[in-house]
Amino acid sequence: MKKNLIALLSGSIFSIGLVISGMTNPKKVIGFLDIFGDWDPSLVFVMAGAVVFNFISFRFIFKRKPLCDTQHQLPANSSIDKKLVIGSIIFGIGWGLSGICPGPGIVNIITAKSEIFYFMTSLFLGIFLFSLFDKKSA
């Protein structure tokens, strides 16, 4: 129960941060990616704020076990493989097309705009297609 409440709280705070930062506004995101055009560097500060906060707090957090588990669950894979490279490029192309990544997509459900409905439905379809592809290639 405590675990679920912490997750609920973390998700709520995460969402408020995304909205305040401007990450949920696709125009801002596209402006950030438009470095050769009308560049809007403001989202650099979002990344900087979040990374610096975690960089400092992680030093303390990783020193002890988490509150509700016996150990921290971190990715075991440390190699830069083809999947990582191709997947990240595919994601980047998709991100550039709409200015929406998964977090802001979910947060924007609240706007009840049809564009978000189309984005989220295809996002789930993309996840599903990957699971088929992954089974086949495994």
Binding site: A48, V51, S57
Partner: peptide
């Protein structure tokens, strides 16, 4: 706004790592 929002995102992410040991 971007900086404050970014710090809040960091705090939320740290909370999940601290509480559940999970990456957000």
């Amino acid at each position: 706004y971007p900086l404050v929002g970014g710090l809040i995102i960091g705090a939320a992410s740290s909370l999940l790592q601290f509480g559940l040991g999970r990456i957000s």
